[in-house]
Write a protein that binds this DNA or RNA. Sequence first.
DNA 1: TAAATGTTGTTATCACAAAGACAACAAAGG
DNA 2: CCTTTGTTGTCTTTGTGATAACAACATTTA
Lengths: 257, 257
Amino acid sequence: MYSMAEPPSSGASIAELLKSLGLTKYEALVYVALLQAPGATATELHELSGVPRASVYPVLERLSQKHLVSISHATPKRFNPVKPEDAVNSLLASIESDATKAKSELSRIYLQAARPVRGDQELIWSIHGDEQIRSRLLELLRGAQSRVQILFYWDHLKQELVTTLHSLHEKVHVDIITDRFTAPVPDRIHVTVRTPPDSGGVSGKYLAGGVFIVDGKQALVVMGSKEEGFTALYSEAPGFIRLFTMYWNFFSNWLPA
Amino acid sequence: MYSMAEPPSSGASIAELLKSLGLTKYEALVYVALLQAPGATATELHELSGVPRASVYPVLERLSQKHLVSISHATPKRFNPVKPEDAVNSLLASIESDATKAKSELSRIYLQAARPVRGDQELIWSIHGDEQIRSRLLELLRGAQSRVQILFYWDHLKQELVTTLHSLHEKVHVDIITDRFTAPVPDRIHVTVRTPPDSGGVSGKYLAGGVFIVDGKQALVVMGSKEEGFTALYSEAPGFIRLFTMYWNFFSNWLPA
DNA sequence: TAAATGTTGTTATCACAAAGACAACAAAGG
DNA sequence: CCTTTGTTGTCTTTGTGATAACAACATTTA
């Protein structure tokens, strides 16, 4: 009756987007169908969306309770979509409200927890997600007391990094090793430009990485690429610090051929 | 082993809030437990959260992929929570991103749909949700061409209503019947103060309602209370308009004893 | 050191609830 | 009379919730 080959940008992916907003597959399909045929009957929506006719009714009922559609008092029942803008905003507002409440409750729990920061210094932590890495990295740098060592083969967020380094206390000594660097820096920031050796046959083009050592006590190592996403390791373990300090020294002392 | 009587504000309700952000019950419980014991092991989290030990591992794996926890490379594995603020913001950002995409996609569909606005004038629509009602009401009033008749026993959003009425074109004649009204209004807005008859034994105290008739062609009827929530009916059907115009006239002409 | 014991991390399996899918039917309308 | 609508009930499927069992490893005890 209807082509089952859905345009990839239409029904299929939108359903995914709407799922993040708390809709089910059927709810998404029916709502989208209703947008294309405002004032439609249940049967029309069934035909348009592919959702079984019997399922259309409860689905529309749920959509009505979620304030996404209005229902007419006529026979046959007809349905109207709330304008997408209003509909999504309404869903989002509800989620944001919950998010705010959750944030305050969780922060309360987090802060009031007697927190012996157990074993933080002996462990290696993995951190996933660009945003988490960014956040952890900047926080780490801002806590620097005396020295920051940076190995930086990584285009992403370079600017933000430099800004943060500028804001450090002036007695913090900063050593940066990177492949190219143009921004002007204060005296206490020392920049060495090094092209990394093309070792191991790994194409350095898409490989990005960074090593950040703070006060010789904390180290954050970032690896990955824009394609695979980034992973970071963080540790205060002496062995970990030693390993990457050595790594850093290797780059620092190495002279390109 | 552990008290199963959870404080109502702690584990239970937070789980609900976090569900809106796309977490499952277990994910929420484990994350909350982890906040109370950062750096805990899987077994400790099992004991704190009540989640079966075997389930803790996959749950933490999912939480890691959602960037809510970091995982140590040690035996036993230890886990650290991402700070609640960052965690919730991260989840929310993802949802908001989806919401934005959805909004644009849906609006595209909505606008490009050949829309014969079928039968809008012969149907009665129910509208649920305070926000939808508010939005529809203000939109309706703003579209007024010549006359607006309002019956208003309803404290809520009175101010916003008055503001909207002020912004109407000056040739639009506005008639308001309500129980009390203090704000100053321009000449073209005519206000009648009427205490409604206490008919039918219904305590008028908590009953709220409103009738809005625009240009004698569109009517929105709001009913409900703060306790039950509000429901509205909208129609352009002549019968509907007549019914509520009559209703309005009844109030308009009725003189209290 | 060897055996006993305990813990960790993993896997398989089952139960349960919600959504997805289908069949059937009474009521209303053409 | 036949069609359509709206409803009900049932069944499947899926993802989460929940339990049991096990191999690997570490710890304790004999």
